[in-house]
């Protein structure tokens, strides 16, 4: 087991190194001079040079890559070109929006998916199951930004139950914070819940065919009881895998929804930073997200190996 962990750890570090090189190289060729962007139409050449110098844009690519990498190892992500504040601080601020949003959406997704899947699996062949499965098909097919637009129109502009967007800030109280995250979380959760429902239902139905369920049924448990008491636990492995994947997706994949609701989250930070050519911010946030995904995968791998020793030898 230790050998396996070490092996995976080395490969994790290698992946991170490759990822950092890819990100840095990709952004090296982004056209557009950050200094020219910041100084605008009437900037003079010497003014531009002064600013480039201050931003540290004059070193060679290798030097800049090196300092970026070594900085990150110390938790120093550099200074934003446009905002002139430490990138780490900015990311920290944004995480207070993105992380709760991702968790909120994930929670909603589970809250919808678990009962729906259990219900559908226990009423196999009924109209009810057909209804649930039809809804999940719709949930997967609906573009979430369109769904978000419709929700803003109905719940924010017309009914005025929720703010149309923006983030109240946690210092305004938990309630106000959650209120501003509700519509975005619903928009994000809908497709995720649909996928989760489908995966979970299939997993439940698979285990229902297994011998131990038959035994349980033979002992007089109803189909629903057998599902809840025995099948659920066994169906959790694929479900947890999907939840893990969805979490890292939600962390990074909320860009469009963050834009619809103008939430100051990580996604919008990157989006703005790209158009402002604040490359150091783009590099660092993308790196952080990649790190998060790789870490989640690593944990999932370890968890599997722990559960099922046969997996240790191979992938």
């Amino acid at each position: 087991m230790l050998r396996y962990v070490l092996q995976r750890l080395v490969s994790l570090c290698l992946s991170l190194l490759v990822a950092s090189a890819v990100i840095f190289l990709a952004l090296e060729i982004v056209p557009g001079d950050p200094a020219a962007y910041m100084l605008g139409l009437n900037a003079q050449e010497d003014t531009l040079a002064a600013l480039r110098d201050e931003l540290g844009l004059n070193g060679t690519a290798l030097q800049r890559y090196g300092s970026w990498l070594s900085g990150m190892l110390h938790g120093d992500f550099g200074i934003s070109y446009t905002y002139r504040t430490p990138v780490a601080e900015m990311i920290g601020d944004r995480l207070w929006v993105s992380l709760p949003l991702a968790l909120f959406a994930l929670g909603l997704s589970c809250l919808i998916a678990f009962p729906a899947a259990l219900w559908a699996a226990s009423r196999r062949g009924t109209l009810g199951e057909l209804g649930v499965m039809g809804m999940t098909q719709l949930g997967i097919a609906i573009p979430n930004f369109w769904f978000a637009m419709l929700m803003v129109l109905i719940f924010a502009v017309n009914l005025r139950w929720f703010p149309a967007g923006g983030f109240a800030g946690w210092e305004e109280g938990l309630f106000a914070g959650l209120k501003s995250l509700t519509l975005p979380a619903v928009a994000l959760a809908l497709p995720q819940a649909s996928i989760l429902t489908r995966v979970m239902r299939s997993a439940l139905l698979d285990t229902l065919g297994e011998d131990f369920i038959r035994t349980a049924r033979a002992k007089g448990l109803t189909r629903g009881q057998a599902l809840r008491r025995h099948a659920l636990r066994n169906a959790m492995i694929p479900v947890l895998t999907i939840i893990g994947l969805q979490f890292s997706f939600l962390l990074a994949g909320a860009i469009i929804i963050e834009n619809v609701f103008f939430l100051p989250g990580l996604g919008r930070l990157v989006f703005q930073a790209i158009s402002a050519r604040d490359l150091i911010v783009v590099e660092s946030v993308v790196m952080l997200l990649v790190f998060a995904v790789i870490l989640v995968n690593f944990t999932v791998d370890l968890a599997y190996a722990w559960v099922d020793p046969r997996l240790r030898g191979r992938r």
Binding site: A164, G165, G166, V260, F262, Q272
Partner: peptide, 18 residues
């Protein structure tokens, strides 16, 4: 000063009196 770059979001924010 609240920064709302998206025109739709701007509309919604004014309409909702945010």
């Amino acid at each position: 000063f609240k920064f709302i770059s998206d025109p739709t979001a701007a509309f919604a924010a004014v309409m909702a009196e945010d």
